[in-house]
Design a protein around this nucleic acid. Structure first.
Length: 866
RNA sequence: GCGAAAGUGGCGGAAUUGGCAGACGCACCAGACUUAGGAUCUGGCGGGGAAACCCAUGGGGGUUCGAGUCCCCCCUUUCGCACCA
């Protein structure tokens, strides 16, 4: 076929790549087979659990979802093709505040709104061709699921891991509910209302004792080599373990007219540098420290100043520039005794001390701490040097620049401890403090217990009752689930909407049979997502959250894929939940997720897509214009998946063009190859049955074969390694370009037909994980009967991928001067001989002395001359 | 302030181990075809220069036969953490 015949009067109708027609056809077929993507319950195959983070059913998928699921779907399909029993489920994180907002705005019940959204998004996912096992779909807002949230809550309560306490909580006025610490942004605003400062309120709340697992959550990060370093670091920082000591400073009551108040006579400080304690020249208390209240009780002037500090701290916290505010404080006029040397040091209140870290009190050592140094300078407090740097020459030990904060030092001015290294001193001083009963080793954490009470309607009811006689009483397991009532008036003020539903609130105490009031708070939705991936393995179990034996088969999750924004919240709660379930005997592993992948954001014009910027790209529109395959392939092609992706409409057009090229090539060559191979006149080119170098193998055919196997390697390697699907898709494009470049040779019959069929088969197989619609269409066109979903992945043959000739760049003194083509098996001597015969090299080397010849086999030759 | 990642053509990006910088795609330019299409095919495309060549991976040094890649200093961007005692 000549070029003009091929493209002459435009493409005939069947040569046009009509994504909509193809995708509609396969969509229909796939819908008619609900078992298509089902995981096998009993299988001798190796299992593979690939999971994408379940979405919140907001109403429509966005491009971030498409990207996330395209990665997971490609992996699932690749894994199927490699013979695994694959679990690839999907579900809905469907409780949460937006449903209530929608209810208020549209007067639609949250359930109806949510289920409607789920239906819409599920249809979008199906249209995009994602291969989910829908028989395992999990919808967290349905009683079949949240029943088990309640069941777990009872188990936590039985084990003392759920408890109720009055505490200062983060209150978002916009959400009209409490937030977990993890849901408060660094700027002190709500994670969902980035402009709304979170307030502090005192409320009775339910907490989960995640801090029981602080150490294990930290330690087991070492068991997660398959997690991004970044996420591991974020979790480590979030847990914030800090090793040090608690030391008690007694208030000095030898001062006239002072007793002590309800907070006692002892100020307990936390320090990581007990070795510097002889340098402590003041005690600094957080403004909200209980002892401050006592000290200010009969001192209105101090009270006023302290209140000012509190207000200032709060304001800074709300503005988000805590850390930026200037350090200042106020002397209380009182003194405390350093238990090591009985020295009286002044007690201050300072705005840089936080009540919610450590003990809310520190010993201030200006010479060896940056902040204490600044503070002491400002208020002219004594700065006493107690640590010297260790130098080579002991004689000339110089005074360091202050503050000297490093721990590689030696103590001076520290009584019996002088002369010890810091490390030694820390050990010894803690021992002495323990012996003396005024201190001990201690570890503090930044991680706090997880407050899960939410004063909202659309969530899992907490299965607890309050009886006038028996107090707090758990709902008996047999009475679960506590059903969330459906006709509830929803407002965003006045506490939980459930409190206004008498049928819900009024209950009977299971202990005494008397009247009881039901808990009207619901659970944080992060409870739902902490264990949902276990439910997928046994989604219809109505006797237990899941069967442990089934979980045993599928867990851990082999690959979890989602956004890095869940690095702390969801991923730390999930780890906690797994450990708690392990301690219950429900599961036997320590960590739920073997490998984690965090994909980058999809942005447009350099900014995150958002309504206000008007730069939203709608998946529906992309699918309608270019097809699902193009949308998916582009989302993988435009950038490596771990980086942000800058969406460009012209880019997806290029992808559509590429799919068209593939389509047209197969349309032109499928039938030819099929018919001819039916007669088996020509040997297949590849495989061991066809010896290389036989006459039938034109150089064009060999070139195609070489490129094919190089492509198989590149694509396969990427699935095993870096997941740089952008480069493996470009590799497939290169293969297609080679096929186009060979069309004249094909037309002349220089490419054996059986091989032509095989190349097309492999091309389709390579494309199948990324563009399933087109791949299925072409697979059928090639006359393949086997199911493409589980057809074996093409095998890479290194022999067939080998180049016969190599182009060797020639450098003179490291500068590229020329290139020569040599047989691939050339010896170094031959390459050098040929290189020296090359004209440009001869000129460059003339009248010069060759100092050195560096040959990198198959790569390059560098001749060093003088 | 601390920690991490990144910085390469007009654009997205490639170069996985120190070995031809710019693969693949977009945009653009030219040509072909013409049932005139926002289709398809072919070719060109970092900068300078007629050419030989020279310059070029945020900037400056260094190591090396050879550096986008390794080392040191600096700049910028993004992300995370942040009075954490």
């Amino acid at each position: 076929m000549s070029q003009s015949e091929r493209s002459g009067n435009g493409h005939s109708r069947e040569e046009r790549y009509d994504a909509q027609r193809i995708e509609a056809k396969w969509f229909q077929r796939w819908q008619s087979d609900p078992q298509l993507y089902a995981a096998e319950p009993h299988s001798g195959k190796k299992k593979y659990y690939v999971l994408e983070m379940l979405p919140y059913p907001s109403g429509a998928l966005h491009m971030g979802h498409v990207r996330n699921y395209s990665i997971g779907d490609a992996l699932a399909r690749y894994t199927w093709m490699n013979g695994y029993n694959v679990l690839h489920p999907m579900g809905w994180d469907s409780f949460g505040l937006p449903a209530e907002n929608a209810a208020i705005q549209n007067n639609t019940p949250p359930k109806q709104w949510t289920l409607g959204n789920i239906a819409k998004m599920k249809a979008q996912m199906k249209r995009l061709g994602f291969a989910y096992d829908w028989s395992r779909e999990v919808t967290t807002c349905l009683p079949e699921y949240y029943c088990w949230n309640q069941w777990f809550f009872l188990k936590l309560y039985e084990r003392g891991l759920a408890y109720r306490k009055k505490s200062k909580v983060n209150w978002c006025p916009s959400c009209a509910t409490v937030l977990a610490n993890e849901q408060v942004l660094a700027n002190g605003c709500c994670w969902r209302h980035e402009e709304t400062p979170v307030e502090q309120r005192e409320l009775e709340q339910w907490f989960l004792r995640i801090t029981n697992y602080s150490d294990e959550l930290l330690r087991d990060l070492a068991k997660l080599p398959g997690w991004p370093e970044k996420v591991v670091t974020m979790q480590r920082n979030w847990i914030g373990r800090s090793e040090g000591a608690l030391v008690d400073f007694k208030l000095d009551y030898t001062q006239p007219h002072h007793g002590f108040g309800p907070a006692g006579a002892t100020i307990r400080v936390f320090t990581t540098r007990i070795d510097t304690i002889y340098g402590a020249t003041s005690i600094q208390l957080a403004p909200e420290h209980p002892i401050v209240n006592d000290l200010a009780a009969d001192n209105p002037d101090l009270r006023r100043k302290v209140d000012h500090l509190i207000a200032e701290q709060r304001k800074a916290k709300e503005k988000g520039d805590i850390g930026e505010i200037e350090k200042h404080g106020v002397a209380t006029g009182r003194y405390a005794i350093n238990p090591f040397n009985q020295e009286r040091i002044p007690v201050w209140v300072a705005n840089y001390i936080l009540m919610d870290y450590g003990t809310g009190a520190i010993m201030s050592v200006p010479a060896h701490d940056d902040r204490d140094f600044d503070f002491a300078k400002k208020y002219k407090l004594e700065i006493r040097l107690v640590i010297l740097p260790i130098t080579e020459d002991d004689e000339t030990m110089a005074e360091p620049a202050l503050p000297f904060t490093t721990i590689d030092g030696m103590l001076i001015n520290s009584g019996p401890f002088s002369g010890l290294s810091c490390e030694e001193a820390i050990k010894k001083m803690i021992e002495d403090a323990e012996k003396g009963g005024f201190g001990k080793a201690a570890v503090t954490y930044r991680l706090k217990d997880w407050g899960i009470s939410r004063q909202r309607y659309w969530g899992t009811p907490i299965p607890m009752l309050y009886c006038e006689k028996d107090g707090i009483v758990a709902v008996p397991e047999k009475d679960l689930p506590v059903i969330l009532p459906e006709s509830v008036e929803i407002t965003l003020s006045g506490g939980s909407p459930l409190a206004r539903v008498p049928e819900f609130v009024n209950a009977t105490c299971p202990k005494c049979g008397g009247p009881a009031r039901r808990e009207t708070d619901t659970m944080d939705t992060f409870v739902d997502s902490s264990w949902y991936f276990y439910r997928y393995t046994d989604a219809h179990n109505d006797r237990a959250p899941f069967d442990s034996k089934i979980v045993q088969y599928w867990f851990p999750i082999d690959q979890y894929i989602g956004g890095v924004e869940h690095a702390i919240l969801h991923l730390i709660y999930s780890r906690f939940w797994t450990k708690f379930m392990r301690d219950m005997g429900l599961v036997s592993h320590d960590e739920p997720v073997e490998r984690l992948f965090t994909q980058g954001m999809v942005i447009k014009d350099g900014a995150k897509m958002s309504k206000s910027l008007g730069n939203i790209v709608s998946p529906d529109e992309m699918v309608a214009r270019y097809g699902a395959d193009a949308a998916r392939l582009y989302s993988l092609f435009a950038a490596p998946p771990d980086r942000d992706l800058d969406w460009q409409d012209s880019g997806i057009e290029g992808i559509q063009r590429f799919l068209g090229r593939v389509y047209r090539f197969v349309v032109r060559n499928a039938a030819v190859a099929r018919v001819e191979t039916g007669t088996a006149r020509e040997p297949a080119l590849s495989g061991r049955s066809a010896p290389k170098g036989t006459a039938e193998q034109s150089s064009a055919a060999r070139a195609i074969q070489r490129k094919l196997h190089q492509t198989i390697k590149r694509v396969s390697d990427d699935f095993q390694g870096r997941w740089h699907f952008n480069t493996c898709i470009s590799a497939i494009m290169e293969l297609v370009n080679v096929l186009y470049g060979s069309e004249d040779a094909i037309a002349q019959g220089a490419v054996p037909k059986a091989f032509l069929l095989e190349v097309q088969r492999d091309l389709v197989l390579l494309l199948a994980p990324f563009a399933p619609y087109l791949a299925h269409e072409l697979w059928e066109m090639l006359g393949q009967k086997e199911a493409l979903l589980k057809a074996p992945w093409p095998k890479f043959d290194a022999e067939l991928a080998k180049e016969e000739e190599l182009e060797i760049p020639l450098q003179i003194n490291g500068k590229l001067r020329s290139k020569i083509v040599v047989p691939a098996d050339s010896t170094e001597a031959l390459v050098i001989e040929r290189a020296l015969a090359e004209e440009k090299v001869r000129a460059a080397v003339a009248r010069k002395q060759i100092v050195k010849k560096i040959y990198v086999p198959g790569k390059l030759l560098n001749i060093v001359v003088k």
